[in-house]
């Protein structure tokens, strides 16, 4: 069972007993345009459907030492109750997706970390302005 599906007590038990090595996750939401970009590639098979098929998502595994690097790089980033790294800048999520498309793989954490300084620069601009979506 993936760690993010464990109950809190199961997680505590396994962590205390060294059964699990800590792994965190980055969830990449796929809207239509993103889905088109991975359609037909081997990544498509890894797409998870959640909330009764209402959302499609790719889940990238992040070993603990690398998730610590991410948490350090972005002051509001945190691990949520599911074990996912959240509250990261939009620029970071975009970079994760770009690397997935480029490498046709979910094993892209190192590639993203190589771009950290560039992402941090973009993230600074996000503190002031994020364009609102056009909805009716």
């Amino acid at each position: 069972m993936p760690v993010w599906r464990l109950t809190l007590s199961q997680w505590r038990y396994q962590k205390l007993n060294g059964v699990i090595k800590m792994v965190h996750y980055i969830g990449v939401i796929l809207d239509e345009s993103r889905y088109e970009q991975i359609k037909g590639t081997e990544i498509e098979e890894k797409v998870q459907s959640i909330f009764g098929g209402a959302l499609k998502m790719l889940v990238v595994e992040v070993p603990e030492d690398k998730s610590n690097q991410i948490l350090k790089a972005f002051d509001r980033a945190r691990i949520d109750s599911r074990g996912f790294i959240e509250d990261v800048p939009v620029a970071f999520r975009r970079a994760v997706f770009e690397e997935i498309v480029k490498n046709k793989s979910l094993d892209i954490v190192d590639k993203v970390l190589e771009r950290l300084s560039e992402i941090q620069e973009l993230a600074k601009k996000e503190d002031e302005y994020i364009p609102p979506p056009e909805i009716e």
């Binding site: 939401i29 949520d80 599911r82 996912f84 959240e86 509250d87 939009v90 364009p131």
Partner: peptide, 12 residues
Amino acid sequence: SGSFLRGMVAEG
């Protein structure tokens, strides 16, 4: 997850 939703919202 509230933070998961915030991420979705931020991405538009």
